[in-house]
Nucleic acid binder design. Structure first.
Lengths: 207, 207
DNA sequence: AACAGCATCACCTATTCATGGTATAGCCTG
DNA sequence: CAGGCTATACCATGAATAGGTGATGCTGTT
């Protein structure tokens, strides 16, 4: 069963090139190619693509907005963003909006088809430089780490499970130790973080 | 100028295989291979690696903790995590701790050397499936908001103060209401979120 | 006026958590 | 080997939290 692909790209020659690429690839079927995303939801409903290639810089309605709608209405549809720009902000917002991957337009044809197959298989294709930007948007809390590596490995595990909302009993079961040992670890954590309750510890642990 | 590489991997045969791989690759120089990360900071200071390969499952001191320290003390050193596990949680914590990329151990030798070069060049190599997990940790606002606007204004205030680590008593004082009222609000919050403790509520409230 | 939703307060019981003390065993370091 | 750190485990007591039930007053809306 071929992967059904839809394309949103305002640049006509690129759109046609992508269409040809999809059409001529055995495992892929083109179910639509559009110059704007004004009717993305309607198109998606009608033609049931598995994967959508979405230009991030579409005129009129922004490609990122379109992704938001697609992701809400068709959560199983995978969206790959296409762009010429190395734009941190757009990367972040697209992924927040529900895009599953991100490709620069200078990607080679083979890589594009690979990416489509990959995202359909549950992957998240992106170039290493894009991945780096994604990572850099992570909370790299150098502030909390001071407190964090005060904690021993076991203590970190304990507070981690507590953060999931687990009770002492569940943490003990999870770590296969006595509940009394869990208590002991928690006491030490409290001493180190200068707190007196789980929630207070969590407030310091992940602020 | 060759890229200076250090390796932390407790499995001896894998460590030696990686060492050989690095040594025999022209653009790479091995500056250290260790079975634990107890002296990672000291080693790094002495031998000035450009890229560190760090097993995530080191015995004794956890590889993730080591990354935290390395990232703080040597912000220019790139860290690549190595693991056999497909573990969402470890992925997230490693990247939060400052790792620049993530590789499964079954990666082929060529891909490993490519990854080292890529991360040194400012990329963030990771497998598509790992990238997908990273993306899924993003705030996908559509899901969490559903729970959030279940809560009334007062309930939101209460859980907000609880998230700061405040006790019922302090929340009551802060909002200038009775502790019993605080308890009532909390009961309603529990019903709405289907949880049974503050920490569990917080795990749902800000995941 | 009746109703639903929200905020407020109270009482009772059972469970969980916080704190202190005590103890054993393994590991690494000086 | 002594001393430090970590992980493990138990006991006892008081404080905090969770669950249940009920009640008042103030909003809106129907």
């Amino acid at each position: 069963m071929a992967i059904r692909v839809a394309i949103y790209e305002d640049n006509r020659s690129l759109r046609e090139a992508l269409s040809t690429l999809v059409t001529e690839t055995d495992e892929l079927t083109l179910v639509g190619a559009y110059g704007d995303c004004l009717h993305a939801n309607d198109n998606t409903y009608r033609h049931q693509p598995d994967v959508v290639l979405m230009d991030i810089d579409l005129p009129g309605r922004d490609g990122i907005q379109a992704v938001t709608g697609l992701h809400r209405n068709f959560p199983t549809v995978e969206v790959l963003m296409l762009t010429v720009f190395d734009d941190d902000d757009r990367v972040f917002r697209s992924l927040c909006a529900g895009a599953s991957g991100y490709l620069l337009k200078q990607t080679t044809p083979d890589n594009i088809t690979d990416a489509i197959k990959s995202v359909y298989a549950g992957g998240a294709p992106m170039t290493p430089s894009i991945a780096r930007r994604v990572i850099q948007t992570f909370p790299s809390k150098s502030t909390q780490s001071a407190d964090l590596d005060l904690l021993t490995g076991r203590e970190s595990q304990v507070i981690h499970y507590l953060a999931q909302g687990m009770s002492y009993k569940l943490v003990a079961a999870e770590l296969a130790i006595s509940i009394e040992t869990v208590r002991t670890h928690i006491k030490r954590i409290y001493e180190k973080l200068h707190v007196h309750s789980v929630t207070e510890a969590l407030a310091k642990y992940r602020p």
